[in-house]
Amino acid sequence: THFTSQQLQELEATFQRNHYPDMSTREEIAVWTNLTEARVRVWFKNRRAKWR
Results as ranks from 00 to 15, higher is better:
1 T>M: 13
39 R>A: 15
18 N>D: 07
10 E>P: 01
20 Y>Q: 03
14 T>M: 15
45 K>P: 00
40 V>N: 01
9 Q>I: 12
17 R>P: 01
2 H>W: 12
19 H>C: 09
52 R>Q: 10
13 A>M: 12
30 A>W: 04
33 T>G: 04
39 R>M: 15
36 T>E: 06
50 K>F: 08
40 V>G: 00
23 M>G: 06
25 T>W: 06
4 T>A: 04
40 V>A: 00
23 M>W: 10
20 Y>M: 05
29 I>W: 02
3 F>M: 10
18 N>M: 08
29 I>L: 12
14 T>D: 04
20 Y>K: 04
50 K>L: 13
23 M>Y: 14
43 W>L: 00
41 R>G: 05
44 F>V: 00
50 K>D: 08
43 W>R: 01
38 A>C: 09
3 F>A: 03
42 V>S: 12
26 R>G: 02
45 K>V: 11
49 A>Q: 10
28 E>M: 14
35 L>R: 02
43 W>M: 00
35 L>F: 03
22 D>E: 04
42 V>E: 15
17 R>E: 07
45 K>M: 11
2 H>K: 13
34 N>Y: 06
26 R>T: 05
24 S>K: 15
34 N>V: 05
48 R>Y: 04
47 R>W: 04
36 T>D: 08
2 H>G: 13
25 T>C: 11
51 W>I: 07
41 R>C: 07
36 T>C: 06
6 Q>L: 11
2 H>Q: 11
30 A>F: 03
45 K>H: 10
44 F>Q: 00
29 I>V: 06
32 W>E: 11
37 E>M: 05
30 A>H: 02
37 E>R: 03
6 Q>P: 05
18 N>Y: 06
4 T>Q: 03
18 N>H: 06
42 V>N: 12
8 L>Y: 07
14 T>W: 15
46 N>K: 14
22 D>S: 09
30 A>G: 07
48 R>K: 02
12 E>P: 00
12 E>T: 02
18 N>F: 06
38 A>N: 09
47 R>T: 02
40 V>T: 00
31 V>T: 11
7 Q>K: 04
3 F>N: 03
25 T>V: 08
11 L>H: 01
26 R>Y: 08
35 L>S: 13
4 T>F: 04
29 I>Q: 01
40 V>W: 01
17 R>W: 10
1 T>H: 12
36 T>K: 04
4 T>I: 03
2 H>P: 11
10 E>T: 15
40 V>D: 00
41 R>T: 06
13 A>K: 13
19 H>L: 04
31 V>R: 15
52 R>W: 10
39 R>K: 14
35 L>P: 00
51 W>C: 11
27 E>N: 11
28 E>N: 09
51 W>V: 07
12 E>G: 00
14 T>H: 15
36 T>P: 07
42 V>C: 14
42 V>P: 00
11 L>K: 00
5 S>H: 12
48 R>L: 07
46 N>Y: 14
41 R>D: 07
28 E>I: 12
28 E>G: 07
33 T>E: 02
19 H>K: 14
43 W>P: 00
5 S>Q: 13
9 Q>W: 12
47 R>M: 05
25 T>I: 08
32 W>V: 15
12 E>Y: 04
19 H>F: 06
3 F>H: 03
4 T>M: 04
34 N>C: 08
33 T>A: 07
27 E>C: 12
51 W>K: 06
16 Q>C: 10
44 F>T: 00
16 Q>G: 07
9 Q>L: 12
24 S>D: 09
41 R>L: 07
45 K>F: 09
41 R>N: 08
16 Q>I: 09
23 M>R: 15
31 V>L: 14
34 N>M: 08
14 T>I: 15
6 Q>R: 11
31 V>F: 13
3 F>V: 06
51 W>Q: 08
30 A>P: 01
39 R>D: 15
7 Q>D: 03
16 Q>H: 11
13 A>S: 11
6 Q>I: 11
5 S>P: 14
26 R>K: 02
29 I>E: 01
7 Q>G: 02
21 P>I: 03
44 F>A: 00
14 T>G: 10
32 W>I: 15
39 R>Y: 09
27 E>F: 13
32 W>S: 15
15 F>G: 03
36 T>Q: 04
6 Q>K: 13
3 F>Y: 12
8 L>Q: 08
40 V>I: 09
51 W>T: 06
5 S>A: 13
9 Q>V: 11
27 E>M: 15
15 F>I: 00
47 R>G: 02
8 L>T: 07
11 L>G: 01
13 A>V: 08
1 T>V: 12
39 R>G: 08
19 H>S: 05
45 K>Y: 10
23 M>N: 06
45 K>D: 05
34 N>L: 06
30 A>K: 02
7 Q>L: 06
10 E>K: 15
10 E>M: 15
20 Y>E: 03
49 A>C: 07
12 E>K: 02
13 A>E: 10
17 R>K: 13
28 E>V: 10
17 R>T: 09
4 T>V: 03
30 A>L: 02
45 K>G: 05
12 E>A: 01
26 R>F: 07
41 R>Q: 07
11 L>C: 03
48 R>W: 04
27 E>S: 10
7 Q>T: 06
48 R>E: 03
20 Y>V: 04
15 F>T: 03
24 S>M: 10
23 M>D: 05
51 W>P: 05
1 T>P: 12
36 T>F: 04
17 R>C: 14
14 T>F: 15
24 S>L: 12
31 V>K: 15
15 F>W: 07
40 V>L: 03
5 S>D: 11
7 Q>A: 06
45 K>L: 08
11 L>M: 05
31 V>H: 13
11 L>S: 01
5 S>G: 08
19 H>I: 05
49 A>L: 09
8 L>H: 07
19 H>W: 06
17 R>I: 11
47 R>K: 05
18 N>Q: 06
20 Y>H: 06
15 F>L: 01
6 Q>D: 10
8 L>F: 05
41 R>A: 10
7 Q>V: 08
47 R>N: 01
49 A>I: 10
22 D>L: 04
37 E>G: 03
9 Q>A: 13
26 R>P: 02
49 A>H: 09
3 F>K: 03
19 H>Y: 05
24 S>I: 11
38 A>M: 13
37 E>Y: 03
35 L>V: 07
49 A>K: 14
17 R>L: 11
16 Q>K: 10
52 R>P: 05
42 V>I: 14
50 K>T: 08
42 V>D: 12
51 W>M: 10
43 W>H: 00
29 I>S: 00
12 E>N: 05
40 V>M: 01
11 L>T: 00
33 T>W: 07
6 Q>N: 09
35 L>N: 05
42 V>K: 14
9 Q>M: 14
16 Q>A: 10
43 W>E: 01
17 R>M: 11
33 T>P: 02
48 R>F: 04
36 T>S: 09
44 F>S: 00
26 R>H: 01
8 L>R: 07
52 R>K: 11
44 F>L: 02
52 R>D: 07
27 E>K: 15
24 S>W: 08
26 R>E: 02
24 S>F: 10
27 E>V: 13
24 S>A: 14
21 P>K: 01
35 L>C: 07
11 L>D: 02
43 W>D: 00
24 S>G: 08
37 E>A: 06
23 M>K: 15
1 T>Y: 13
47 R>Y: 02
12 E>H: 03
46 N>M: 14
6 Q>F: 14
29 I>A: 01
28 E>Q: 14
2 H>D: 11
39 R>S: 13
11 L>Y: 01
34 N>K: 09
49 A>F: 08
